[in-house]
Write a protein that binds this DNA or RNA. Sequence first.
RNA 1: GACCCUAUCGUCCAGCCGGCCUAGGACACCAGCCUUUCACGCUGGUGACGCGGGUUCGAAUCCCGCUGGGGUCGCCA
Length: 493
Amino acid sequence: MLQDPTMTTAARPVRVRIAPSPTGDPHVGTAYIALFNYVFAKHVGGTFILRIEDTDQTRARADSEQMIYDALRWVGLSWDEGPDVGGPFGPYRQSERGPIYAEHARILIDNGRAYRCFCTAERLAAVRARQQLEKTGHGYDRHCRSLPREESDARAAAGEAFVVRLAAPLTGNVVVQDKLRGDVTIDVGQIDDQVLLKSDGMPTYHLANVVDDHLMEISHVIRAEEWISSTPKHVLLYQAFGWQEPQWLHMPLLRNADKSKISKRKNPVSINYYRDAGILPHALLNFLALMGWSFGDDREKFTLAEMIEVFSWERISLGGPVFNLEKLTWLNEKYIHDLDYGQLADAFLGWRMRREHWMQILPLVRERIKKLDEIIPMTEYFFSGDLDYSAVLGDLVVPEVAPADVGKGLLAYVERFEAREGWSAAMLEEEARAWCEALGWKPKHGFMLLRVGSTGRKASPPLFETMAVLGKEITRRRLRRVAEVIASGGKVK
RNA sequence: GACCCUAUCGUCCAGCCGGCCUAGGACACCAGCCUUUCACGCUGGUGACGCGGGUUCGAAUCCCGCUGGGGUCGCCA
């Protein structure tokens, strides 16, 4: 009788997870991977878990976690276990699991599969620089690996700062058995003595991920392709602990039009953008399902329930799918047309027509209207996605600056607010003034550019208040797009 | 650069356990029909197996090489 390797994992209850890091806007890639985890789990009657990977103290953002919950629920995905709903394997927030990681790092030090490293950042930089120069190997030079245990213990006890590193095997191969791609064999010479525990006592992704997946009894790790090259390290960790590996499945990466990994420089990536731009949640989810997966017949529009019913890994294709806004829009149109009038009214009123949204807009226009009938025409750009700039092309200029440079300049402003936390009129204005100064543009020219770019008009309520209400997602998209319009001389629509 | 993944229309997918493929569907694009307008809808069209070697009676389908694309090389995830 042949042994089916999948039988061993099939025997385990299926438990899968999405493990986003709360470092910014809820990413469309998170929804994408969450979808496949969710659908697979539901197809086999398994459990879908949400775990928050917030081990990077410096990057975690307070509002990000809530936005992830909201965005995932908005598209229609819900989890059986997670920080906000609890569950038997908690806590589900890694920042609350510190002692667990420390304990496990300790286990590895004791069994010789990890060691303390006291190297300073400066020494590491020097090592890296020399490797660069001599074009020799790469990675940590294992300087501290041979430290006697007594010395290591003593220095740690004395309070010297250290990290814990994986003692990767020096010879041999590691095989990653990927259910989607077959066996991937890597020479251990490629594997670095990866940091497991940072000097602040927090684990790195590699340790936290492996420890949590094991403790939470995750049966299948379904994640994006970008993780495939660190998977051998994870396999090594499972071996070091003596644990059973989960089944690995690496999904293809969503791409920009130029095939690079999807990024906000080239594509809207925040789920909130699609929401604000008028995309229906089910349409977004359906579209994501089409990225790398096919229904089996020619069906392109289907419900989550239908997808769950017919789901199979065999229908995954591995080429990186380009996220195509036009096709999303077409699918969304189908969803809109299938709504009855009552549903359409509810969808529309629940969208940006909400009272809270009007309460932000009205203070900007009240002084500017004489009759109620002026409100809609005057505020139309608060309810649009992309704008038509054909009538204002002549105003998208800065005196004595070439269009290409005007476009580039505009992008520089976007970069500025991207680098800032929060979203407020005050911040936007501060950056705008500094931006004009840096470019040597008169504020009136720079500001007009921002005004026309974000509203499509020469006349608007106070610019920065307006941008604040428009929101980061819409503003970013419009400014990036108008930069293209300018640089192309109006060719891009 | 090293390692790894990947490769069918511009884009998303089907086909890939070899013949039924003069390669199918969808988006976009073009043309026509419908229509007082616009849109929807309908009909048709343009358009791809990256290249080179094998294996085979026969290859988009299997094997090898090349090339292209992507990812990863952090005390970020």
